[in-house]
Simulated scan of single mutants.
Amino acid sequence: MGNTHDDPAAFASLLDGVEEKLFGALPDETWVYPGHGRDTTLGAERPQLPEWRSRGW
């Protein structure tokens, strides 16, 4: 999602936006093309959201 330089508030804000604007608006079948790593779908990544939030990056 991007580097927030160890700023928990900035990370939370960024993740909130990703959840709302991507995961909340598009179907699980939507392909995403990250800047690194393999292509994936929102459905494959959705289960990771709680982990991302809890670890803070």
Rank of each mutant, 00 (worst) to 15 (best):
M1F: 12
M1S: 11
M1T: 12
G2C: 07
G2S: 09
G2A: 12
N3M: 07
N3S: 12
N3D: 15
N3C: 12
T4W: 12
T4V: 13
H5I: 06
H5D: 14
D6S: 13
D7W: 08
P8L: 06
A9W: 10
A9Q: 15
A9C: 06
A9F: 09
A9I: 10
A10N: 06
A10F: 09
A10V: 10
F11G: 00
F11P: 00
A12Y: 10
A12T: 15
S13T: 13
S13M: 06
L14M: 15
L14C: 10
L14F: 12
L14E: 13
L15P: 00
L15V: 15
L15M: 13
D16S: 06
D16F: 01
D16M: 04
G17V: 11
G17K: 02
G17Q: 13
V18K: 00
V18W: 00
E19L: 03
E19F: 00
E19H: 01
E19D: 11
E20L: 09
E20G: 07
K21A: 14
L22D: 10
L22N: 05
L22F: 07
F23S: 03
F23Y: 05
F23Q: 03
F23V: 05
F23R: 00
G24I: 08
G24M: 05
G24N: 05
G24R: 02
G24F: 00
A25I: 05
A25S: 13
A25T: 15
A25G: 05
L26P: 07
L26G: 03
P27M: 04
D28L: 02
D28C: 04
D28G: 15
D28Q: 04
E29C: 05
E29R: 11
E29H: 10
T30S: 10
T30G: 04
T30M: 06
T30Q: 10
V32G: 06
Y33M: 11
Y33P: 03
Y33S: 09
P34A: 05
P34N: 08
P34T: 04
P34F: 00
P34S: 07
G35K: 06
G35E: 14
G35P: 10
G35W: 09
H36S: 14
H36M: 11
H36Y: 15
G37R: 00
R38C: 05
R38A: 14
D39R: 12
D39S: 12
T41G: 04
T41Q: 04
T41L: 02
T41H: 03
T41D: 01
L42K: 03
G43T: 11
G43A: 02
G43Y: 02
A44R: 14
A44E: 15
R46H: 03
R46L: 03
R46P: 07
P47G: 01
P47M: 01
P47W: 00
Q48G: 08
Q48L: 14
Q48A: 13
L49T: 14
L49I: 15
L49P: 12
L49V: 14
L49W: 05
P50W: 00
P50K: 01
P50F: 01
E51R: 10
W52M: 08
W52Y: 14
W52P: 04
R53P: 07
R53C: 04
R53W: 09
S54Y: 06
S54E: 14
S54G: 07
S54W: 07
R55T: 13
R55F: 12
R55A: 08
G56H: 08
G56D: 08
W57D: 13
W57N: 11
W57G: 07
W57I: 08
